[in-house]
Write a protein that binds this DNA or RNA. Structure first.
Lengths: 197, 197
DNA sequence: CGCTAAATAGACAGGTCTGTCTACCTTAAG
DNA sequence: CTTAAGGTAGACAGACCTGTCTATTTAGCG
């Protein structure tokens, strides 16, 4: 029995290569626009290897997004810990990091926002994965806002979140990395204005 | 000669029905996810009628977005002219209108942002159509910002734009219409803080 | 060596997609 | 009545899509 095997280990070089390749191509052209065969050809991996690791294309997308979320989380923690303890400095560092991202040659917007755009059904696993990831950023912004002198840190954090997402949209739509600095100035102004007088 | 006809008139009931149906379905499920046949079945129109009016699916998408842009522009002008002449009132009216939109049962984010997400290639006609439409909003915000007491109306207008786009993203991702009011308060705070002291 | 798990190539089914073509119908104007 | 434009139905080509299956090969390991 069990002639064909499971290959369900979470640690596998082929699996990781598939996730990296899949994310890169999805990010370049979109989720529906990129077919399985394109990813397999680019990665040089057989089709059955993919379907041994993932049940479906949707599952591959979710895993690729999850992998990307881990990368982002690590980078963000590095950015924050490189800045001083001053919450305003940390806010500045966050938006400066956005600017660096916007200037990378293959910047193509936010993979998560674009995933929501293609999978707007809230019941979709892709949609759920995106919301989960976005919530982490919002939580981090909220804990940052709590270090600021405001009586409504939650609202302030959300407003900063709106500026951050808006900056990504603008940078992507108009290829305008300067959106990061405008968002940063806006965020700092809101943080200062929110001070209880 | 010319046994088959052109049917290229810009005013045609079938053409308009196609555009309305196409936009509704694209907005519901996405551009790649909705096929021509689905639109034709929903509209009750023959395939050749579509291809007599539009050269390709891409051209249909562009036309549907253009039609939607006209609607939005009219609605926005109505919103602005219903408010007082005070630019802060006009700003408030804009974000209140956003809230109303977010609360509509079939709200599904911004059709233009989602189009950019699916057609990230700047050379794509869809991408170009979206940028053109978004620029109109930015120009309107800029002319509004010029009525405010600030020495950098362009930056202020862009920051308000970031809040507006961010609010749409948040409202769509988390089904949170309250994003509109947060964005509005943020925009008003920025407008007041930008006053030359 | 021998066993096992992982990966491979490639064919394949079944469906969907865009776009084209033909032949026919309806309607309205001259 | 005649003519022409717009619309219709349906078949069709050709490409692409996801997912499955089989038979074979490779690689690690006791």
């Amino acid at each position: 029995m069990s002639s064909t095997s499971a290959a369900r280990s979470r640690k596998s070089p082929k699996r990781d290569l598939l996730l990296e390749t899949a994310f890169r191509l999805f990010y370049l052209s979109g989720y529906h626009a990129v077919g399985i065969d394109t990813i397999l050809a680019e990665a040089g991996v057989a089709k059955m290897t993919l379907y041994n690791h993932f049940k479906s294309k949707d599952e591959l997308i979710v895993a690729a997004l999850q992998r990307r979320a881990d990368e982002i989380l690590s980078a963000r923690e590095a950015t924050l810990s490189a800045a001083s303890d001053d919450p305003l400095d940390q806010l500045s560092a966050l938006f400066d990091a956005y600017e660096g991202w916007f200037k990378t040659p293959d910047f193509n917007g936010c993979a998560f926002i674009r995933a929501i755009a293609e999978y707007p059904d809230q019941a979709s696993p892709v949609n759920q994965a995106v919301r989960q990831q976005k919530q982490i950023l919002i939580d981090q912004l909220e804990s940052l806002a709590r270090k600021l002198p405001t009586d409504d840190p939650k609202s302030l954090a959300t407003q900063i979140y709106l500026l951050a997402e808006g900056a990504i949209i603008r940078a992507h739509t108009f290829r305008d990395p300067a959106a990061a600095q405008l968002a940063k100035e806006g965020a700092l102004a809101l943080a200062k204005a929110a001070r209880r007088p």
